[in-house]
Nucleic acid binder design. Structure first.
Lengths: 335, 335
DNA sequence: GTGAAAGCGCTAACAT
DNA sequence: ATGTTAGCGCTTTCAC
């Protein structure tokens, strides 16, 4: 196959130990031998075998990332951050896209553990007991990203969804709206669904605005279709609605499209605020006001937590990342 | 650390060779010992060490993927396909996002080669001589995705950009348009820029429509901003334009936004066709007619080519994937 | 049907 | 400053 440390040693008339020292920047050789060895390495085009290294060091400098199928720019941003942090720490990342159903998840976990990744970023999915126990038994550090676990002591990185939804609703209220509806995503989703609904409700209650069943449409997911389908439904059950909080930007885009088709003008007749601040939020017509999450940063922090665990062996605290309202043009002040 | 094959062997009162055989489904053991060993494996929660395996087998069952910063859903779709094929072949994928500048590329290539990935998918970037030579010396199979090399014998998977652009222009022409403009992306881009411009020109020429400088606006990239900036420029130099071919969906989205701001109705006053068929093409207002590439399939095919190389050792032929017009609502027939 | 032992490419004592 | 050697966890002859 390709050259080994032995070849280099032989060619340079030194022992493999010396070559190893030079490669790893340890002490124990003269400048002269170093130059000689480096020259041989160069000539041969020798490339150290990270697999062999990994076997000894018990460190593969690889982390695994588990993602369910999600809006692409969400995943991309999160991944960008993870990769950045990994790269800064001399590691690379193996990505595994799990199906939404979750059966693939266990397989991927197994795979990652067999490959002896140094750690795992588990993103946007509920950490089931089965997963947790498996990972725990394998003693692989794990961090949750854009999700959290109530049952297990696993560090996580996410925004406070309850609070963020509260912020969104409050923003609409502050703009003078009182007839406010929500298209909520999946309310069974304990991590991103329920808390956003609760946050919405709380904001309404705190401003003494009645919020009943008719204010909220529960869609099955967080996608474009859910918005397309959701708007007519919401209007039917709540005709006086003047502003909508969509639980995701994709839902919001669906709302925008559906509104356009029905000849409803946004924001003149209907205000819309989204959630996520995806790339495409600034490309919509009109540009979408939304709740922004620092996605890249979140990915970065998640990976950094992993690296901190490698160093200290201790589990650091979780991180609640700040969200903010990104004001664009889809919400109008109500006279 | 965790358990090794030795632990399993000891616990089961057999040799490690036997355990290995059982693990790898080879012959040479009784059903009884198999059951005994499997039981121990189960109890211990033993997980074979893929790193050690890799060292012996010279096969890591990992492939590397190199991507520049691109539109997220483009990357995601391509990656989805790669991962699917990898998974089907018992492999996982390490993703590396290179900067557009390209300096990081060499580092990533080195990294992947040190990690002894079985093969590399090199996507959407120009394969420089330096890269090629390095990978060639390391004897790592490589395949180009959504790009091609004129200088080196490397298999690739992509659509025919010239032809696809021709198709786009022809579509507009067939819809009765004659005043057709293009916002072209970067014309220095030899892989996706130039060919699309040439294809556009050829279609115009074949239909005897004059196509001069004023028909085309060269933007610096393929992004949303380029469309925003490009439309006013195009209108200024070519006021009678009734239809536009945008060299990417993101450019097209920029055109849509810019048109909206200027009160130009799409498709009533201006028809727009894009290129890529990103997820968001169906979410625009109006939904975007565009040239579709089978992105997921392309990723899949690229990875499959790699696996074929592993098997046969031979370099298979490149694959030109079919493109097609995805008709939505942004182009209007001209009376 | 099963075991002993060599060795994959490297690092890390331990010598010298 | 440099070399020797024992593994890391596994697969694979080669014996029995």
């Amino acid at each position: 196959m390709s050259y080994t440390i032995k070849d280099v040693a032989k060619e340079a008339n030194v022992s493999i130990a010396t070559v190893s020292r030079i490669l790893n920047g340890q002490a124990g050789y003269s400048e002269k031998t170093k130059i000689k060895v480096m020259k041989v390495i160069e000539e041969l085009g020798y490339s150290p075998n990270a697999v062999a290294r990994g076997l000894i060091n018990k460190r593969t400098h690889t982390i695994g990332v588990l993602f369910p199928k999600l809006s692409s720019s969400l995943v991309t941003d999160l991944l960008d951050g993870i990769e950045k942090a990994a790269n800064d720490n001399g590691s690379s990342v193996i990505v595994c896209h799990t199906e939404s159903n979750g059966k693939k998840t266990m397989n991927y976990l197994q795979l990652l553990i067999e490959k002896r990744v140094d750690g795992i970023v588990f993103a946007s999915e509920v950490l089931k007991e089965e997963y947790y126990q498996y990972v725990k038994k394998a003693k692989v550090p794990i961090v949750l990203l854009s999700t959290e676990s109530y049952a297990f002591p696993v560090p996580y990185v996410k925004v406070n969804d309850f609070h963020a939804a509260y912020t969104a609703a409050k923003y609409l209220i502050d703009k003078g709206h009182t007839e406010i509806g929500m298209i909520s995503g999946n309310k069974e989703d304990i991590v991103a669904g329920k808390p956003r609904i609760d946050g919405f409700r709380k904001a309404m209650a705190d401003s003494r605005i009645v919020c009943e069943e008719r204010n909220i449409v529960n869609s099955s997911g967080f996608g474009f279709r859910d918005g397309i389908v959701g708007l007519p439904k919401l209007i039917e059950q709540f005709p006086s609605v003047t502003a909508i909080f969509a639980a995701s930007d994709e839902i919001a885009m669906g709302v925008l499209s559906s509104a356009y088709q029905q000849g409803i003008k946004v924001p003149e007749e209907l205000s819309v605020i989204g959630f996520d601040n995806l790339d495409l939020a600034e490309m919509t017509i009109p540009p979408l006001t939304t709740i922004g999450q620092p996605l890249v940063k979140m990915g970065e922090v998640a990976a950094q937590i992993l690296f901190k665990i490698f160093e200290t062996g201790e589990i650091p605290e979780s991180r609640i990342m700040p969200h903010k309202v990104v004001e664009r043009l889809s919400v109008k002040e109500r006279a």
